[in-house]
């Protein structure tokens, strides 16, 4: 190709490129950002709401925690990686008391067994009981532990499949509690 054709091509790319970038920009009011997304267990979507009874017999509704970052952990006592990460969640519960809410949704175990386990391990955060697996199905939980990090607006910002360590928990918390 001749030099003129290359120059023409370069110029066209320069102008058309800049125009497409300008047309594709995200408006300052954020109106191009995904809005009106349905609740779903996916990053960027509102966390599906649910109501369960906790191990202490209280009624727990996720939506009631709006305005607070939430760490929603799915676990069971028979799951070794879950047991390994529970002390980290308890430590975070104590460290961020009132600022970040830790919720441990137990998977279909008897309330008495969960209460005994929680006492032995020293868990004091919210422990709703998902007796019928309804909530884990709603959150498409396929393996334990799975943890959802939900920001103040109720939007899921990170999903961790597998156990948390203190380091990975600290990293994940930055997405909802900078």
């Amino acid at each position: 190709m001749s030099r003129q054709i290359w120059n023409l091509l370069f110029g066209a790319m320069l102008i058309v490129g800049a125009a497409w970038i300008w047309l594709g920009r995200v408006p300052a009011d954020g109106s191009a950002a995904p809005t009106g997304l349905p609740p779903a267990p996916a990053v960027g979507h509102p966390a599906p709401d649910f109501t369960l009874t906790t191990v202490t017999g209280e009624t727990f509704t996720l939506a009631a925690l709006r305005e607070k970052p939430v760490v929603l952990n799915f676990w069971a006592t028979w799951c070794p990686p879950c047991r390994a990460e529970l002390p980290e969640l308890q430590a975070a519960h104590e460290r961020y008391a009132g600022e970040v809410i830790i919720v441990g949704v137990n998977q279909a175990e008897a309330a008495a067994a969960v209460a005994t386990f929680a006492r032995q391990v020293g868990l004091s955060f919210l422990l709703p009981l998902d007796a019928q697996h309804h909530v884990s199905q709603k959150y498409a939980v396929r393996s334990l532990p799975t943890t959802f990090f939900i920001d103040r607006d109720g939007i899921i910002r990170r999903i961790q499949i597998g156990p948390l360590t203190e380091a990975t928990l600290a990293q994940a918390l930055k997405t909802i509690f900078p």
Partner: peptide, 21 residues
């Protein structure tokens, strides 16, 4: 390096198999 305070308490995690870390 970024999360040293956490690793300082759990040095075994430095070579842990956690795919998120």
């Amino acid at each position: 390096i970024a999360f040293w305070p956490a690793y300082r308490l759990q040095p075994a995690e430095i070579v842990g198999l956690n795919p998120q870390a």
